[in-house]
C-alpha cells in the first residue's frame, strides 16, 4: 500500500463509484456516488485539513461517511460529529438530498495491523461505525457490518485489491510524499516553461489540481506548502538548470543566469533523465512501500 493510505482509499472509492476498469463495479451498481463536504458540516471538527467524504446513493436511500485511519487509533470526535447530526441538519449544511440522507452510516478504513486498537477506539466512542481492514490482499469488513446487506457483501469475506493499480483520480494531496507531488507538478511546470512562461505563480499550479476545489481552507494552505516544497527540491538540484523557486514563484532559467538553460522541446530527453533522478531521490521509500 502507498504511504498515503488516506488518499489511496479515497481514490479507490472514487474508482469504485465511477466504474473504473480493473475495480469491482458493485458499489456503482448500488447507486453510490462520492461527494465531498468541505465546509458547512453541522458538527465540524475545527481546523480539519481533509474534507468529509461521503458515498451517497439515491437507490439505497443511504449515505456512508468515510473515515480513514492511517494510524492505530481514530479520534472519537470525528465519529461523534456524524452521530450528533440530524438528517435535517445534514441536508441544510451539505448538498445531500432527502433520499440520500434517509439513513446513514459510518465506515472506518484502517490497516489490519491496527485491528485491535481500532476496534477499541470505535467501541470507546460509542458509535456503531463499520470497521474495514486493509492489507496486501484487499479489504475485509471486520465489525459492525452495514445494515444494507448488499453493501456489506462487497467487503465479505474479502474484496481483493491490487493496491499498486488503484486509479489516481486525485494524484496527490498535502499528505503525499514529495515524489508523488513532484511527479504531478514538475510536468505542469515544464509544460508552462515550454509554452514560454517565465514566471509561474505556485498558487496557480495548485489551483489547477483536481483536489483544490474539493479540499478545506486548511487543506489548501498545506497543499500550497507541499507543492512549493516539492518544486523547491526539484529546483535545488536536478532541475536547477531549468528553473528556480523564489518566494511564491517558479522562475525560468535564462542563458544569462548562472549555468541556466531555457527549457525547450529539443532537450526533453535530458529533462526526462533528470526527472527520473529527482523521483528516485525523493521517493525511494514511497515507491518501495507501494510495491509491498
Amino acid at each position: 500500500m502507498s504511504s498515503n493510505f488516506r488518499l489511496q482509499i479515497t481514490n479507490l472509492l472514487i474508482g469504485m463509484c465511477r466504474g473504473t476498469p480493473g475495480l469491482t463495479a458493485e458499489l456503482r451498481e448500488l447507486g453510490y456516488r462520492e461527494q465531498w463536504i468541505t465546509s458547512g458540516f453541522p458538527r465540524d471538527v475545527a481546523g480539519r485539513s481533509h474534507p468529509v467524504m461521503v458515498l451517497a446513493s439515491r437507490e439505497t436511500r443511504h449515505s456512508l461517511f468515510v473515515e480513514v485511519a492511517p494510524g492505530p487509533r481514530i479520534d472519537s470526535d470525528r465519529l461523534l460529529q456524524y452521530t450528533g447530526t440530524t438528517a435535517v441538519e445534514l441536508r441544510r449544511g451539505t448538498n445531500l438530498s432527502r433520499e440520500q440522507t434517509e439513513t446513514y452510516g459510518i465506515a472506518v478504513f484502517g490497516l489490519t495491523e491496527h485491528r485491535d486498537t481500532l476496534r477499541e477506539s470505535i467501541e470507546e466512542s460509542g458509535v456503531r461505525a463499520a470497521l474495514l481492514l486493509c492489507d496486501a490482499e484487499g479489504i475485509r469488513l471486520d465489525v459492525n457490518p452495514f445494515m444494507q446487506a448488499a453493501l456489506a457483501n462487497i467487503f465479505r469475506p474479502l474484496l481483493p485489491i491490487s493496491w499498486a493499480g488503484v486509479p489516481r483520480w486525485i494524484p496527490f494531496d498535502h499528505e503525499s510524499g514529495p515524489a508523488d507531488i513532484a511527479a504531478a507538478v514538475v510536468p505542469d511546470v515544464v509544460a508552462r516553461l515550454l509554452a514560454g512562461e517565465t514566471r509561474i505563480d505556485i498558487a496557480e499550479v495548485c489551483r489547477e489540481q483536481v483536489l483544490w476545489k474539493l479540499t478545506t481552507e486548511a487543506g489548501k494552505k498545506r497543499l500550497r506548502a507541499s507543492v512549493r516544497g516539492a518544486l523547491a527540491e526539484a529546483a535545488g538540484r536536478e532541475m536547477r538548470k531549468y528553473f528556480s523557486v523564489r518566494g511564491r514563484f517558479v522562475e525560468a532559467a535564462t542563458t544569462s543566469s548562472d549555468d541556466g538553460v531555457p527549457l525547450e522541446h529539443r532537450i526533453l530527453r535530458i529533462v526526462s533523465r533528470r526527472q527520473v533522478q529527482l523521483l528516485t531521490r525523493l521517493g525511494g521509500d514511497d515507491r518501495n512501500a507501494e510495491d509491498r
Binding site: 472514487i14 456516488r33 462520492e34 461527494q35 465531498w36 463536504i37 468541505t38 474534507p51 451539505t94 448538498n95 483520480w169 483536481v210 483536489l211 483544490w212 476545489k213 474539493l214
Partner: peptide, 11 residues
C-alpha cells in the same frame, strides 16, 4: 474531462 465542482462538492 476530470475537474472539480467545488460548489456541489463533486468530482
Amino acid at each position: 474531462r476530470v475537474r472539480a465542482d467545488g460548489d456541489a462538492g463533486k468530482l
